[in-house]
Simulated scan of single mutants.
Amino acid sequence: MSHSPRSRTKPAGSVESTTISDASQVEALLGALEDEDCRAILEATTDEALTANELSESCDLPLSTAYRKLELLTETGLLEEQLRISRNGKHTSEYARSVEDVHVSLDSDIELSITRSGIEEHGQSVVAGAD
């Protein structure tokens, strides 16, 4: 399957660091990072935003599983859902990794420090001839 070239733009100075100490949020994030399918999706979205169908194919996942994992990853903030606008008028959701680094701190409580990078401006990309 060939894809039209897409890339995320990272505006200068758009890196943001967040510390998460809420136990339920830490557990959800660690659970997502522990999941092999979620890690495959995060790896696949390193350089470009992809649709659920593209991720299903590239990660060798059933589409229903891909959608479940995408929901988990967007709920935890590891992926950002964007709108892909094609010139033919069809619009679809695409998913971009929104996290560069996750660090675990084991002081008195477990805390996660997350470094987020800038995603495409306005959360949209235009793809020529996309289906």
Rank of each mutant, 00 (worst) to 15 (best):
E54K: 02
D35R: 15
A28V: 08
A28N: 10
E48Q: 13
L63W: 05
V26W: 02
T65L: 10
K10P: 00
E16S: 09
A12C: 00
A44P: 04
A52E: 10
L61M: 11
A12F: 02
C59L: 03
D22I: 10
R68S: 12
V26C: 06
L63I: 11
E43D: 14
L30Y: 03
N53I: 09
T19Q: 08
K69C: 10
T45N: 05
V15R: 07
A40N: 11
L42W: 01
L61E: 09
A66F: 00
D35P: 05
A40W: 00
D47L: 12
K10Q: 13
E54Q: 14
A12M: 00
E27M: 04
A44N: 05
E48L: 03
S14K: 03
A44V: 02
D35H: 15
Q25S: 15
Y67L: 10
G31Q: 03
Q25H: 13
A66S: 11
L33R: 09
S56E: 07
L33H: 08
T45P: 02
K69E: 07
A23V: 11
D37N: 13
E36C: 01
D60W: 04
A66G: 03
L29G: 02
R39K: 13
Y67G: 00
S21D: 15
L42R: 01
E27F: 05
V15C: 00
K69Y: 00
L61Y: 07
A28I: 05
D60K: 14
G13P: 01
E57I: 14
A52Y: 07
A23R: 13
S24A: 14
S17W: 08
E16H: 11
A28D: 14
D37G: 06
L55D: 03
S14D: 01
A49N: 06
A32I: 05
I20M: 02
S24Y: 10
L50I: 02
S24H: 12
T18G: 00
E16D: 09
L63M: 03
C59R: 09
S56Q: 06
